[in-house]
């Protein structure tokens, strides 16, 4: 009875493991959103400059 095995408490490592999945996963999704937003803003700025240029050339 003294050799009876008990399940070790490894909850800390489980939480650490899932924290890695959450941080890397969320980090990647945020990086996709940030890059998408930056490119959309750039596209809008270029489109606005093009409109201003065409208005200037007409006047």
């Amino acid at each position: 009875m003294f050799l009876q095995e008990i399940t070790p408490d490894t909850s800390f490592y489980m939480l650490l493991g899932y924290a890695v999945f959450a941080i890397l996963g969320a980090g990647y999704v945020i990086s996709l959103l940030a890059r998408s937003r930056k490119l959309r803003r750039e596209a809008e700025t270029i489109a606005r400059i093009q409109v201003e240029d065409s208005e200037q050339s007409l006047s």
Binding site: P8, T10, Y13, M14, G17
Partner: peptide, 19 residues
Amino acid sequence: PREVVMGAVQRVFYYHVAA
């Protein structure tokens, strides 16, 4: 269920292999 020899850390297995 919780694995009896390794305990809670065995749950890392599911996402570890999937990744």
